[in-house]
Design a protein around this nucleic acid. Structure first.
Lengths: 353, 353
DNA sequence: TTTCTTTACGGGAGCGTTCCCGATACCGAA
DNA sequence: TTCGGTATCGGGAACGCTCCCGTAAAGAAA
């Protein structure tokens, strides 16, 4: 009852060797159909299931991959994780998840944990204040399969899965302009994070394209979460005149700002139009519903996982093993979608149909 | 570079046996301090880290636990998972997470996956339509450490971590009554789910205690997600007169209902006061902010994980091994908190300070 | 009959580690 | 000198499995 049947039990029962049982179970050619049948029957009767640990020891693989995310209570990364599961589970891989809590040192510990556990590969979206480039480099040098997604370091030669943050920030800002906004503020994320930098660039180039002045005082550097939205909105309120548009680096930031502004009698979108980034369920809950850029979260997970899986399997191929020439380094850019909602429908449309 | 140092490498380098190295690393008594020092030095130089797989094979433990949740994009279960991580990671255990998507068959597959992976224990919150009692029984009979949390089966003799759903539903309903509501509708979850049953009971007994009639037509059985809120609200609107209160089985249901009602010109809380259950970030985002019962998610995770850990470790104790007498079966009930917000502040308070 | 090939199976090493047990060497005591 | 004791170490099995290699039996080809 409590003891799990092993290959030895089957062998003993049939008076054959473990080798033969192993071959029968593995459906090899050099085993008599009769014995194979007998083996399978006994295996079924004893409810035999192979011991995954021994297989891992033998194959010198853990069949486990590690995923590091900044957090996963905001549904964005949770959805990505589901996409990754869809790829790895059918292939017999397990997934270990760790949160960096936006902290570089925690991220480093997570990576060490994964190394000690000898994961076969790592998927990572870097923390807000991360400067762990040296660690990524070491991992890559040690031949650890590694794929970045969503938040990626600039100067690392590794596979990445992203959306074109700059492009979609540009389009979101342009949308605000098209709605009649002329003084558009931007709540930017922290400096060195790829998504922050790119989205800020997109914002600026949209202004430039449409001949609007780039006013640095309208760019408020805060963070990525809701509290940052509050803080930014406080500064916003002190401006005279109030900007007529706001492009926030993330939805939570936008929502935090909206809450603060509404509490102070500012109407959205009439007084100020708002757009966020990275669709979340909140966007449809908040009032008015928030214009934002919807990312293909599930696909991001699937794509990143597939890239990693390629690296893992090709590593064991005798094809192109040690030479770096087997170029698995790819950057995949996925499409997104600008989800226009009421929070930004204003100005020339105001009072329209 | 690519090869990980083993105990053999150290032994070879120092011309001693692997046994001695093992003992030196394990800090045993019967090893010369000098050799121990030498071993540790070489280990450090070679960056030796023990191979977790071989340890698992030897110890006949996987140092892995499985967690089955209905979903984890709604932050509730995500927060619980973080609590579990806090317990297991420091002890060297890994966590495998699987979603049942509220489906019994998927849940069954998840459990089988965990069994095949030989997890040391399982934590589970059962799916909405689950009737996998036979499977839970089999797991328990096979000595699999098992702890239920949040959503638990009634008739299973296993450890459980819950909040008193009946009590808090009672208090939430009573709160609506105290606000002047006299015809309170209830959006109930599906029939057999523990939380649905208990919360419905709490709702009914609150009505009874305050001498209000229990009108079965006011109890609308839907689901647990936002769409159920829409559907319920549709039926609500057809009632004449409209109920003046609504207690929804979950926050998403409440929020879905609010959205529908607001779209149809119903004012909250003036026309109908609303309360939900299970705090989520949405509750503060939605307008008006939603009254709800806040659960100690992190503690639920910590508690469930601790109970499971106890079972796992005590199983390997020679103390009380095979006999069932070592009673690890416990039900822990954690406290919650009624979070009163504007969605339910009405009637006698209306127009007040 | 002899030789060769095919078919089917067993032996045993090895993955990395722990741990039981036996062996050696040295020391003081008889 | 001999003996029991202590400190230190090595040998080897074991965890469960795969896979390389060797080998026996049986049939086919010489």
């Amino acid at each position: 009852m409590t003891k799990r049947a092993t290959i030895k039990d089957i062998a003993h029962e049939l008076n054959i060797s473990t080798s033969t049982v192993s071959r029968a179970l593995a459906d090899q050619w050099d085993v008599n159909p009769d014995t194979r049948r007998a083996v399978l029957e006994v295996a079924k009767r004893l409810n035999y299931r192979s011991n995954p640990i021994s297989l891992r020891l033998r194959s010198r693989q853990t069949w486990t991959v590690g995923v590091v995310v900044p957090e996963f209570i905001n549904s964005y990364f949770a959805e990505i994780l589901i996409g990754m599961q869809r790829v790895f589970f059918p292939k017999g891989y397990n997934i270990l998840v760790a949160q960096s809590n936006e902290t570089a040192s925690v991220e480093e510990n997570n990576l060490k944990l994964f190394e000690n556990n000898m994961v076969d590969g790592i998927l990572i979206s870097v923390a807000q204040d991360s400067d762990n480039t040296a660690i990524y480099d070491r991992l890559l040098k040690n031949d650890m399969p590694l794929v970045f997604f969503n938040r990626v370091p600039e100067d690392i030669r590794a596979s990445k899965v992203i959306v074109d943050d700059r492009k979609w920030a540009f389009l979101a800002t342009e949308h605000l302009i098209s709605q009649g906004c002329r003084r558009i503020a931007h709540f930017a994320g922290n400096g060195n994070l790829s998504v922050s930098v790119e989205r800020r660039h997109g914002y600026i180039s949209a202004l430039k394209k449409h001949g609007l002045p780039v006013d640095e005082s309208l760019i408020i550097e805060a963070g990525l979460q809701m509290e940052s939205g509050y803080i930014g909105a406080m500064k916003l309120l002190q401006m005279d005149p109030l900007p007529d548009g706001l492009f926030a680096v993330t939805d939570p930031v936008a929502i935090g700002a909206m809450k603060f502004l509404k509490n102070h009698g500012i109407r959205i979108p009439e007084d100020i139009a708002v757009a966020g980034f990275t669709e979340s369920p909140y966007a449809t809950i908040v009032e008015p519903p928030l214009t934002t850029v919807r990312q293909p979260t599930f696909d991001i997970g699937v794509t990143a996982a597939t890239l990693l899986l390629d690296q893992i399997t090709s590593r064991h191929d005798p094809d192109k093993s040690d030479s770096w020439s087997g170029d698995n380094v790819r950057t995949v850019t996925l499409e997104a979608h600008l989800e226009v909602r009421e929070s930004s429908l204003c100005k020339n449309f105001r009072g329209g149909s």
